[in-house]
Design a protein around this nucleic acid. Sequence first.
DNA 1: CGAGGGACCTGGTTGC
DNA 2: TGCAACCAGGTCCCTC
Length: 269
Amino acid sequence: MPELPEVETTTNGIRPHLRGQTIERFIIRERRLRWPISEAIDQLTGQKINDVYRRGKYILMSIEQGTMLWHLGMSGSMRVLPINSPVAKHEHVEMQLSSGQALKFRDPRRFGSLLFTKDDPLEHKLLCKLGPEPLSDDFNTDYLYKACRNRSTAIKSLVMDSHRVVGVGNIYASEALFSAGILPTREAGSISKKRLGKLVETIKNTLQAAIEKGGTTLQDFSQSDGKPGYFTQSLQVYAVKEGCRVCGKTIRKIVQNQRSSYYCPKCQS
DNA sequence: CGAGGGACCTGGTTGC
DNA sequence: TGCAACCAGGTCCCTC
C-alpha cells in the first residue's frame, strides 16, 4: 500500500490528534508484525507525545523517553477514533489517548512494524542508511547522476532502493519514469545526466501531486480520516489497461525484481 | 561491494 | 459454486 505520499498523508492526518496527548493505555492484540512488538512499548503508558513526523516511509512519534518508529508495510493504515469504537479485523494496536480517542493501527498482512528507541531515531539501524528525501534539495540531478554512474542495475530498481532515495515505491516509480520518458528497464549507468535531471523533476512532481490528492487508493488504502486517496484517477501507466494517454499505444506490463512495471513502448526509451 | 531471490503475511480476484 | 493459483502499495537478509 503506502508509498511516501500515503505515509505523508497519514502522518499529517494523525498529528493534530496526537501532539500534546498523553498515552493512557496500549492494547496490543497481535505482537507478530514484521518484527515482534517489544515489551518496551507497553511501558510507554503515561508518556506525552511531543511530535509526529515522517522519515522515508517511517512515521516517528517522539515522546519523553524516546521515539516510536512505525512502518505501514504493504497493507498498514492508521486512524484516530473514539476509544469505544468497534474493533476492526486486523486492528493489531490501539494506543489510547488522554483525549478519549485512540490511534488504531490496522495491518492485514502484518508487514508493518512498531519499534521503540531511546536514542536518536535517525541513528537507528533501520534509518541511518536511508537515502535523501525525494522532495528535499539533497535529491538533485548531481546526486542521482552520481548514484547511477557505472551502475548496471535497471533504473527502476535503483530509484526504488531506499538507500539511494526514500519513498519511491512501485506505483510512483512507474509513474515518474513514464513522465520522464525513460524505460524502467534502462541500465542506470547508460542514462544521460540531462535525462536523469528530468527524472528527478518528475519524481518530485509525481510525489507532490499525489500528496496533494491524499495518495493513491488501489484496494484498501484510506487516509487517516477514512477517505480514499484521489491520485488513483491521475495514474498514467500503473495498472492502466487502456492505451497511453499521450500516444494511444497499449500500456505494457512486465515483471522486474518480482514487481510489476508498467510503461508505454512508444513514449519511453 | 552489487545483484538477485526468498522470506514474511492475508485477502481479493481470476480461471478452470 | 468451489477451489487453487496468482497477485498486491515494502524491504530485510542471505547467497553468489
